[in-house]
Write a protein that binds this DNA or RNA. Structure first.
Length: 360
DNA sequence: AAGTCGGGGCT
DNA sequence: AGCCCAGACTT
C-alpha cells in the first residue's frame, strides 16, 4: 500500500456524497470567527498569514487589533514597520509581518490597493505560498483551488488511508492533486474550510472524535481502526541549546540600555536587552566586560531569575543580570537608553518580555 | 530536500 | 518532554 496514484487513492471514494456531508456539517457546526464576518479578501489574507503554524485561539485577539489598526491594504502599506511589528509582538515568525507589509505595498502600487483576484498575481506576492494562495482564492473569491495545510493532510490521510510522509514537501503536492479531484466546485470555500474545521474540531491529531464525525462512513482509517497510525510524519530534530548572559543595564538616570536586532535572521528588527553567549566567558568577568565595552563604572550587579525559551529549532538559556552603572558614554547606533515605561513602545520577543515583566 | 523562522497549547 | 498547529522562504 505505497505510492499509489491519485486515481488509485480515489478508486472507491464517493466524492459527491462526501462533499454534501462535509459542507452541510461545516455550515451548521463552524465556529464564529472574526475573519468569517465578511468576505473582505484583505481580512481573509491577514487571517491566513496569522494562522500559519498558529492556533485559532492565539490569533483572534491579534487579528482584531491588527484590523483595527490597519483596516485596509493602503493603511498597512503606509504604516511604520516598527508599528506593524509591535502589533505582531508575541505572535512569532515575524517575517510574516514584514512580508505582508511588503505585499500590501505591492498591492497599493500595482493594483490600486485592491487585492488581485488573479491567481498568478496573488501568488507573486510575498508571503503567499501554495496554501495561502488556495485559501484566499477559495474563501474570498470562490475559486476551486486546493488549500492544503496540516489539517487537510491529516484528515485526508485518514479518510483515504494515505501513509506517505506528510513532512516531505512532495507529499503536499499529492494532496493538492487529490483535492483538485474531490473539491466541490459549487462551494470550494465551504469545502476547504470544512476540511480544516473538521481537522481542528473532530479529526484531531490525538483522540479524534470519530463517533461525532460527519464523514465517518467514508473514512478508511475508521473502518480499519488505524486512526492512531495516520498521518505518517517523520520526527523533527532536537533543538540546539544556546546559553547567554543577558544584561539589564541601568544608568544613573534610571534609563535602561536596549538594542535593535539585525533586520534579518532570528527575531529580525525586534528589540532586546544586550546578550552575549556564555561559552567561554566566566561570570566573574562580567563587570570588567561591561566597563571595557561601555567605558563606564559598574556600581552594583544582581542576578535575576534565569529565562529559558524554546524555539522551533533552538533553546535559549539566559542568565540575567541587573547592572547599575554611573553613566554610559558609549553606546552603538542600534542602541537606545529608555526609561522603563518607554519599553512598551518597542516590539520585544517573548523571552525579553519576560525580563521586562520581572522589572516591575 | 533540508534548514530557518516563534510561540503557545496539549498530552 | 515531545508533538501539534489554517506554512513560506532560503540555500
Amino acid at each position: 500500500m505505497k505510492n499509489l496514484s491519485t486515481k488509485e487513492y480515489l478508486d472507491t471514494f464517493n466524492k459527491g456524497a462526501f462533499q454534501v456531508s462535509l459542507i452541510n456539517w461545516f455550515k451548521s457546526s463552524q465556529r464564529t470567527l472574526p475573519w468569517r464576518a465578511d468576505k473582505d479578501p484583505y481580512k481573509i489574507w491577514v487571517s491566513e498569514i496569522m494562522l500559519q503554524q498558529t492556533q485559532v485561539d492565539t490569533v483572534i485577539p491579534y487579528f482584531n487589533n491588527f484590523i483595527e489598526q490597519f483596516p485596509t491594504p493602503i493603511a498597512l502599506a503606509e504604516a511604520e514597520e516598527q508599528d506593524v511589528l509591535k502589533a505582531w509582538e508575541g505572535l512569532g515568525y515575524y517575517s510574516r509581518a514584514r512580508n505582508l507589509q511588503a505585499a500590501v505595498r505591492e498591492v497599493k502600487e500595482s493594483y490600486h490597493g485592491k487585492v488581485p483576484e488573479d491567481k498568478d498575481q496573488l501568488s507573486a506576492l510575498k508571503g503567499i505560498g501554495p496554501y495561502t494562495l488556495g485559501a484566499i482564492m477559495s474563501i474570498a473569491f470562490e475559486q476551486a483551488e486546493p488549500a492544503v495545510d496540516g489539517n487537510v493532510m491529516r484528515v485526508l490521510a485518514r479518510i483515504l488511508n494515505i501513509n506517505e510522509d506528510i513532512a516531505k514537501p512532495r507529499t503536499r503536492k499529492l494532496f493538492e492533486l487529490i483535492v483538485r479531484e474531490i473539491i466541490a466546485s459549487h462551494d470550494p470555500s465551504s469545502f476547504n474550510q470544512g476540511l480544516m474545521e473538521l481537522g481542528a474540531l473532530v479529526c484531531r491529531p490525538k483522540n479524534p472524535k470519530c463517533d461525532h464525525c460527519p464523514v465517518q462512513e467514508y473514512c478508511q482509517a475508521n473502518t480499519l481502526a488505524i486512526q492512531g497510525m495516520l498521518p505518517v510524519k517523520t520526527k523533527a530534530k532536537k533543538q540546539k541549546k544556546l546559553s547567554y548572559y543577558t544584561f539589564v543595564i541601568e544608568n544613573n538616570k534610571g534609563e535602561l540600555l536596549v538594542e535593535k536586532r539585525p533586520d534579518n535572521g532570528l527575531l529580525a528588527s525586534l528589540w532586546q536587552f544586550p546578550m552575549i553567549e556564555t561559552k567561554g566567558v566566566d561570570m566573574n568577568m562580567i563587570p570588567a566586560f561591561i566597563e571595557a565595552t561601555f567605558h563606564t563604572n559598574v556600581l552594583t550587579i544582581k542576578q535575576l531569575a534565569p529565562v529559558r525559551h524554546v524555539f522551533s529549532h533552538l533553546i535559549w538559556q539566559m542568565d540575567v543580570y541587573a547592572i547599575k552603572v554611573d553613566q554610559l558614554p558609549q553606546i552603538a547606533a542600534n542602541q537606545l537608553m529608555l526609561i522603563s515605561n518607554q519599553l512598551s513602545d518597542y516590539p520585544f520577543p517573548v523571552p525579553h518580555q519576560r525580563i521586562i515583566n520581572m522589572l516591575v
